[in-house]
Every structure is written in structure tokens, then in C-alpha cells.
Nucleic acid binder design. Structure first.
Lengths: 353, 353
DNA sequence: CTGAAAGCGCTAACAG
DNA sequence: CTGTTAGCGCTTTCAG
């Protein structure tokens, strides 16, 4: 039988409540008694049963990170930062990968009830839920880097008024994508391909595509479907093989294309490889621009030009804000971070001709 | 107040045990009653409180994945596969990243008691624990890709006799590293650098370094400390910046070096970048060989020569075996998988000189 | 400051 | 087949 708080109490010659108080840093306890109890606990290697604690407490001091799209290294970094912060706050982290077939809000709902969560961070995925479902969650939560900004922002605004705790953090995907494409146009590129995802559903892919279109439009360049490649549906969109196939297809269809904008760095790596395999030079023949700004881009050959999202800051702000909401210190808010176009080796002036 | 099983019982006009039976697929229940109960549950959106269930059950049907070294994409893949398998078994996955400063066995111990785990997978890290601590865990567990094979294997053997459930899965790091270095020697390389980690503590780095030394020895090549670079201690050893610095240092110290063996692909990417930045050609001036065989290697430029570990199979075997042990179907075992040397663009014949 | 006692929500005998 | 009931291990009043 596993040791329980009772065993400890007996061994110390005190009541169970005293042991409980010792464990929980309760003020109403004699420092000496507490020291004695803690000593026995340490010697015994006793660990209180969380289920029992949670059951009683209603309060769990745990937050969940629901991640859609595990393979993207972009999220890995964010997770690390958030986990650290949560631990510092002495909360437990529940890390769950959400399958592409699963609905993250449904998962969240179960988790909240099952584990009495204090808050949730949604990483990745799209925003397609109506407010009712969200409101039903009943705990503060925050969206990080999720598509469908307009709807989300309106929703957060509404939440602010109704005191419903819920925030959003992201870069302005449309604007940032536009910036990247504008840069390419400025370098003289007229035939610019795009590798995107989720064109027809709310997603960051859709937003970044929108930015792409707007950039073309503003510069009087035609929008052609031939230059748009949507990666295949599947478990994971953001993969190198997907980027590879995409670039290959784009090159075949558009011999005159001189640049490709990929909505993620990982896709861009795959695209680069395809271009190189085709015997073409980067950036001399084709320029490549990614999105995310993951560390790997700096080490790729060629170094990747990219839209760098401030991951560290986004992660930190997100989790910090979540705790502010948990502690009722702040109201819902839309936080738009600004990204930075980092120009490296994979892009340059368009070939004359 | 959150809805409980009682509320449901009342609403259905049945007893709580009936509701419990309905939820748990218990056979002793009238299908009609069960249907009625389930309907109400669905309508109410009721989710049973896990803490209460766990508290009672002693059995939790959950296993933990303790990962040391989150950033390595090698593990990401394994985690995905294992999570999937666990879900199919209708178990819950508890995913925990273990900090480099934390002791994974201590974490495991707490988790087992807190959450009544059925089993554990240790991913990464070294094997430095004595059997007593391990034995005290009390649940089946499995080590995957952990250093210190000899000790671990002896330990597993002992476990087999005592009926203590505990297995190990890995490739033979010494042999595989030797294979890689032998290949380089066969290509005419005599001055081969190595980028390793944890030279003086039990770790895969140590094992792979051993393989490197043995290969040199068997070929009558001298071992020189100048050619060995141990990455700096830190949160994460397996990073591109670390590989970058390592290669840079090795090149400066050994102008005549014609090849570098890195104990992970991620380090190799960093090394490649450093070589390129130095204005040297891969593989013409310097050949690079990695270890792990992650997908990214196929898309890097140049494509990376590497020792490919059978990730999918290792992950599957590991988790499958864990369940066999949980179900008492199998005894402890050492599973040594074989890796494959994948020769790609980053390596070739040594320059004559 | 400390102990006794009452549950938290659920499961699992046990008796119908 | 179904309802009643006794805890699982812990926290938390409530009296001392």
C-alpha cells in the first residue's frame, strides 16, 4: 500500500490536518512541528496523491497548453518558455497535443472539468468556434498565433465588456505577409509564388495569403491562381516534404517565377531544397522568403529570409497575461505584436529579363 | 457549481451507481437505461471529474512520457508515435519535459504517486541511477535511447530474473558511431573531428565518442584531443549554435582536418553552416556526418550523411513493449535496434593532399 | 496552534 | 439489473 497522509501523521504523532498544513505551507502551524513533519515526509519519500487534493480543492493550480501542430519548431520554443513560467508560478502544466481531427475547444472543455484547470493557452489552430462554446469554458484562456484575427478581435472586444476572460496574441498576419511580399516586389520580382495552407478556412494561411494578394494589388500586379499552391491536407501541413512538393509544382507551372513566399520557415526549407534539386540557384534564379523566424533559418544554406515573429516575447506575454486574468488583474485584450522582416541570403534582386 | 454524477442521477431518476455503470461501459446495466443516461449526459455536457475517479480506482490507465531534451526533433517524432499508440489503448498520456537540472527518476517517482501511473517511458537522458531507486518506482518502465548501455543492459538482465518490469531500447551507439567513422576512414579521411557531449558522464555522447575512438584505433589512426570538441554545458546540448561553435573551433585548431562526425544531426547542421561560412566546401574540403537520421537532413543543403536510427520502429516497439509489461505479458528485455548509415551529399572522399 | 470530523465526486461491493 | 452505502486521500471547517 502506498503511504498516505495518515501514515505520516501517525509516524509524527500528530493529526492529519497538521500534516496537511505542513505540506501546504499553511501559516497556522508551529514552525517546529512543520519541520518535524517535513523531515519525516522527506525520509519516507511521501508524495501526496494529487487526485485527492484536486478533488477537495476545486482549485487546481494548473493550466493547460493545447497545441495544434506539434511538429512546428516554432511552437516548441513557445512551449518551453511557457512551461518555465508556469512552473515558476508553482502551477502544474498540462501539455496536450491536439490532433488535426480533434476540436481543441472540446478537448479544453473536458480537460477543464476533469482537471479543474485555472486557465488555458491555445497554440495554433484556427478560430472557428462561436462565443457560446468559448464562454462555456468558464476559465480564462488565451489564443496564441491563431488565424481569423478579425473575428477573434471582435470577440475579445465583446468579452472585455462582459467580463469574460479571454485574450488573443498574434502578429498581424496580413500586414506582415504583405510586408514580405512588398519587399520582394521592391526587389523587382513580378512573378511571385506562394505556398500556403487552409486557403478557404480561417487560418493563418488564409491571412497570409490575403496579405500576399493585397501586396500584389497595391503594386498593380495581377493575382494568378497558378502561382498559389495550397499544401495537401494531412496530419501536418507545416512540413518540409510539403514545401518541397509545393515548390516543385510551382516551378513546373511557372517557368518565369522568380520568387516564392512560404507561410512558414519549415515549408521554405523544403522549397529551397526543391529549387536546388531543380538545378536552379537561390536567390539568383529564385528568391525564397519564409515566415516564423525560427532559429534553424539562420543555419540553413542559404540562410533564410523570413518574417520573424517575436516568439519569446509572444510566449511570455501570453502566459503572463493568462495569469493576470486568472488573478483577475487584467481585462481581455487584443495583443498585436509586430514581426520583423529579416533579410538574409535566400532572397535578392530579381533577374533582369 | 459543476454538475456531478448525482445531478445526472436525479435528472434520470436513477441511482448514482447506474450512472457510473453507464459511463464506464459496465456490463451490468440495461441497454435502455444506459441509453437514457447517456442522452442526458450528452445534453448536459457532463464530464466526470477525473480526480474523483482516480482517487477511487487506484488504477489510472495513464502512462507518462518523460522527455529530456525537448528541442531535439528526433524526440518529437517519437513522442507523436507513442501518444497515438497510448490513445488507441484508451490510456491517458502525461507528457513531461524534464529539465537538465532535474532528475528524471525523481520526477517519475512523484508522478507515479501523484497520478497513479501505469507505466513510464524515459526518453533521452543518461542512465545513472542505481537499481534501488528504479525498483522503488513500482511500475513498468522503459528506457529509450539512453546512454550507458552496458550498465543498463546488465540491469535489465537482473530485472528479468527478479520479475521487475523494466526494459531498454536503443541502437548500439558504440557500434553505429564506429560504422560512421569507419566509413569516413574508408573514404580516405585521416584527420576526423568529432563534436560530442557529456564525454565524462554516462551519455550517448560518451558512447558515440567511444565508437569514434575504436574506429581510429582499429585503423591505426592516432586519437588526438585536438580533434574532440565537447559542446558547452547548458540547457540544451543538441542545438545548431552549439554545432556551429564546435566546427568553428575544430577548424581553427586543425587546418588539416577533412571530416567532422557530429553525434546528432542538429549539431551537424550547425557545423555545416560554420564550414560554409569559413568559405570551405562540403564535402570537397570537409565531410560532415551526423547521427539520428531526422527528416530535416534530407532537406538540408547539402543533404546530410547520417546514422539513421529507426525512430518509428523504436517508438512503436518501446510503447508496445511497455504495454506488454503492464499487462504482464512479457518479461524485461534489452532491445537493440540496428541503425543505418545513410550516405548523402555532405560526405565524400578525402582530398588528396 | 492542533485534532476531530465532514465531505469533495466517484466507484465498487453489497444487498435487493 | 438497480439502488444504497462505504470509503479512496486529502483539505478544511470547527472546536478546543
Amino acid at each position: 500500500m502506498a503511504t498516505t497522509i495518515k501514515d505520516i501523521a501517525k509516524k509524527c504523532g500528530v493529526g492529519v490536518s497538521t500534516v496537511s498544513r505542513a505540506i501546504n505551507n499553511h501559516p497556522d502551524i508551529n514552525p517546529e512541528t512543520r519541520a518535524k513533519v517535513m523531515k519525516v515526509i522527506r525520509e519516507t519519500g511521501f508524495v501526496p496523491n494529487d487526485s485527492a487534493r484536486f478533488l477537495k480543492r476545486t482549485e487546481t493550480n494548473s493550466v493547460a497548453l493545447l497545441v495544434k501542430g506539434i511538429t512546428n519548431p516554432f511552437f516548441t520554443k513557445m512551449i518551453r518558455i511557457m512551461e518555465e513560467y508556469i512552473q515558476e508560478k508553482d502551477y502544474a502544466t498540462i501539455l496536450r497535443h491536439v490532433d488535426h481531427t480533434e476540436d481543441e475547444v472540446v478537448v479544453a472543455e473536458s480537460l477543464i472539468k476533469e482537471r479543474r484547470l485555472k486557465g488555458i493557452v491555445f497554440l495554433g489552430g484556427a478560430f472557428t468556434h462561436d462565443e457560446k462554446a468559448l464562454r462555456a469554458l468558464g476559465v480564462p484562456f488565451i489564443f496564441a498565433t491563431i488565424g481569423n484575427m478579425e473575428k477573434i478581435q471582435a470577440s475579445v472586444k465583446a468579452a472585455k465588456k462582459s467580463g469574460f476572460a479571454y485574450a488573443n496574441i498574434a502578429v498581424d498576419d496580413v500586414e506582415e505577409a504583405k510586408k514580405a511580399v512588398n519587399y520582394l516586389i521592391g526587389e523587382g520580382h513580378h512573378r511571385i509564388g506562394i505556398v500556403t495552407e487552409g486557403m478557404n478556412v480561417p487560418s493563418v494561411g488564409q491571412l497570409r495569403l490575403k496579405g500576399y494578394r493585397e501586396a500584389l494589388e497595391e503594386n498593380g500586379l495581377p493575382y494568378s491562381e497558378d502561382l498559389v499552391y495550397e499544401v495537401k491536407e494531412g496530419i501536418d501541413h507545416y512540413t518540409m516534404p510539403n514545401g518541397y512538393q509545393a515548390a516543385q509544382a510551382l516551378m513546373r507551372k511557372n517557368p518565369d517565377m522568380t520568387a516564392i513566399f512560404c507561410i512558414s520557415d519549415v515549408l521554405a526549407f523544403g522549397a529551397c531544397r526543391a529549387i536546388i534539386d531543380e538545378g536552379r540557384k537561390i536567390p539568383d534564379d529564385i528568391s525564397v522568403v519564409g515566415y516564423d523566424g525560427i532559429e534553424e533559418g539562420e543555419y540553413y544554406n542559404p540562410r533564410l529570409t523570413t518574417v520573424r515573429q517575436p516568439v519569446d516575447q509572444m510566449a511570455e506575454n501570453a502566459i503572463e497575461f493568462l495569469f493576470c486574468m486568472i488573478e483577475k488583474k487584467r481585462k481581455p485584450e487584443n495583443m498585436t505584436m509586430s514581426a520583423e522582416l529579416v533579410i538574409r541570403e535566400s532572397s535578392g534582386a530579381a533577374k533582369k529579363g
